Simulated scan of single mutants.
Amino acid sequence: MSNIVNTRDKTAIVGIGTTEISRDCGRTELKMAVEAILDAVEDAGISVDDIDGMVNYTMDKSEQLEVVNALGIPNLSFFSKTPYGGGGSCATVAHAVAAVEAGLANYVVCYRSIRDASLPVRIGDFDASQQSYNDDDVYYGMYMPYGLITPVSWVAMFAQRYIHEFDIGDDAFWPVAQINRENANRNPSAWFHDQKLTYEEYMNSPMNVTPLRRHDCCLNIDGAMAVIVTSAENAKHLKQTPAYISGVAQGMHTHGEQMTSYYRKDITTLHEVVEYGDLMFKMAGITPKDIDVAQFYDAFSPLVPMQLEALGFVEKGEGVDFIQDVDRLRVDGELPINTSGGLMSEGYVHGMNLIVEAVRQIRGTSTTQVNDVEFSLVTGGLGVPSSGIILRRG
């Protein structure tokens, strides 16, 4: 533990880059990845030649080798990928921190490029020529015959139990959808920038899978995001305000599965989040009360109060009560959340957009800017091995 704690504030995110968020991008994941990385390079005030490390998701269709070729990067001395979809979002930064601290790279770019709106959704990659399945196909084959074929169906099982155990009302998750949309309405880059959401529209929206309504779910889009991690020393000489990485951790808990950890004694607790949260806050030397703004992974709205509980913001079973006073979640409230609109109203870039927004909060450039931010929290995807980050203003 002592060695891990000593990494506090020794690295920083110094560049952020984005493409537009759309539902018909008209180009490949590779092209969007290159655009986002070039934007991050420009933002940081470095050159492409400075990049010597790269991390993306195993699910990403833009292969690192092709990105290197397209950008003309001379050499990568470090490269890796993080699994488990959105659970690997903050993990990309964890890998980058490890590489920089170990001296394996100086400037590591982390990115995600996704076409979830304009390409058909595929689960698994069956190779007809080889007549074989990859590991994901074997895993999913255990569930698809029984109707559990989408993330919303998997999370709905956890949500149903959570509602039953704590006697939660039918409209209890409305504040999450409400605050996300309010923040998106201030963000010109958000997909739902021009579309307000009323309580009536929320309640009357169709059930995707009970108890999750349409507006309880994230928004599939096309887009790419990138961040650049370097040492705190390098960060001092670059053009942007550094977002120092005070804590970053991953969590993989016993009896875990990919989205279907139904055989645990308690499926209303996000066990991986409990584990990585404890480590992350110890690294940063702070408690949840010190967090000024949070970007909670909001693929589905019940996961926000569940994360409040798992990370220690409230006690077990108190997450829904906390969010009922929506003013708590607003820009001048007790815990402002998802200030760009989150995955539900800005767009679903598998959590990388949450990291970008957390950096904006440190810089003071968010469209829903919280005053005097010192600590900015980001969380990764839920129902899978997960990860989180605490950023600090210098």
Rank of each mutant, 00 (worst) to 15 (best):
E20A: 15
E20S: 15
S22F: 08
S22G: 13
R27F: 09
L30W: 04
K31Q: 09
A33F: 06
A36R: 01
D43T: 04
A44G: 09
D49G: 11
I51K: 00
M59D: 15
E63L: 11
Q64N: 13
Q64M: 14
A70G: 09
I73N: 08
S77G: 07
F78R: 03
G87M: 03
A91S: 13
V97S: 05
E101L: 12
C110E: 11
D127F: 10
D127P: 05
S129P: 05
S129G: 14
Q131L: 14
N134D: 14
D136M: 13
M144W: 08
I149P: 06
F158L: 06
G169L: 07
G169S: 07
D170H: 09
A172N: 07
W174V: 07
P175W: 03
Q178E: 13
Q178L: 08
I179L: 12
N183K: 03
K196T: 12
Y199M: 15
N208T: 13
R213W: 07
G223Q: 03
N234C: 08
A235D: 06
K236Q: 11
H237G: 10
K239Q: 07
Q240N: 14
T241K: 01
A243Y: 02
A243W: 00
S261E: 06
Y262T: 12
K265C: 15
T269L: 12
H271A: 13
V274R: 07
V274G: 15
E275C: 10
M283G: 01
I286F: 01
Y297L: 09
A299G: 11
L303M: 12
G312P: 00
G319I: 04
I323Y: 02
I323C: 06
I337F: 03
M344N: 08
H350N: 14
T368I: 13
Q369T: 03
G381Y: 00
S387P: 04
